[in-house]
Amino acid sequence: MTARGESPEIVFWVGCAGSYDDRYKRVTKAFVKILQATGIRFAVLGTEETCTGDPARRAGNEFLFQMQATSVIQVLNGYQVKRIVTACPHCFNVLKNEYPDLGGQYEVVHHSQYLQELIHEGRIKIKEGGSYQGKRITYHDSCYLGRANEVYEAPREVLASLDADLVEMKRCRTTGLCCGAGGAQMFKEPETGRKDINVERAEEALATGAGTIAVACPFCMTMMSDGVKAKNKEASVQVKDLAELLSESQGL
C-alpha cells in the first residue's frame, strides 16, 4: 500500500497469539472478515510484525522489552502508521501507553472499541434476528482493557448489538476477576496454591448459566477455555471473542 502511495485507514496489529495460536487465529480471521465486509481499507504488517515486548517487560526484562519495542517503533514509524487496531489488550496497552516514552506515538484502539465505533457510525449494519438473539452471554472483563485502561462499555455495547441476553458475573467491570494469565503468567505454570485462577473464574462464569462466555483477549480466551474444560462443560458452553460473535451473528 505504502509503495502505491496509499495509506490505510487502520493498521490491524494481529499480535503473536492472533498469528500463531490456532484458536486465536480464528479470531483474527473473523475480525478480518468484518473489516472486509465493511469495506475498511486496512493493512497488516505480515512477517514484519514482531512481539511488542510486553511479556518481557511484565516479567521484569526491561532490556529485552526496549530492544523489541525500539525495533517495532522503527517499523511502525517507517510506514508512518497513524492508527492501530488490535485484538489483544496487552498489545493495546503497551502500544498505547508505553510506546510514547520510546518515541512511538500512535492512536491505538482495541478491536472492541473499533467495532463499537463502526456500529455507531452505521458502517457495520446490524441485521435483525442474528444467531445470538435472545441467547444468554456473559462477558469476562480483561484486566488490560478494564482496570488498566478503563474500557468497560465498548465490549458490552458490541454484545448488546447482538440482541443477546447479556448477564453479568458477580465480579465484573472494576472488580472483574483476572483470568490468571496477565503479568506474563501466560508463559509459566502458576505458583502453588489451592486452585488455579482460571478455574475460579470459569466457575463464576458458568454460574451465570450463560451458554457463551464472551472474551476480548487471547490470553483470557485460552484461560477461560481451559477453565471450562476443567469443569467438563466444553460441550455445552463456548468461549468466543467479540469479533467471532459479531461475524457469526451477521452470517459472515
Partner: peptide, 14 residues
C-alpha cells in the same frame, strides 16, 4: 520475535 517457539517466517500463514 514471539514469546512462543514459532518461526518468524510463519507469522503471516494465517
Amino acid at each position: 520475535f514471539a514469546p512462543w517457539k514459532f518461526p518468524a517466517a510463519d507469522r503471516f500463514n494465517w
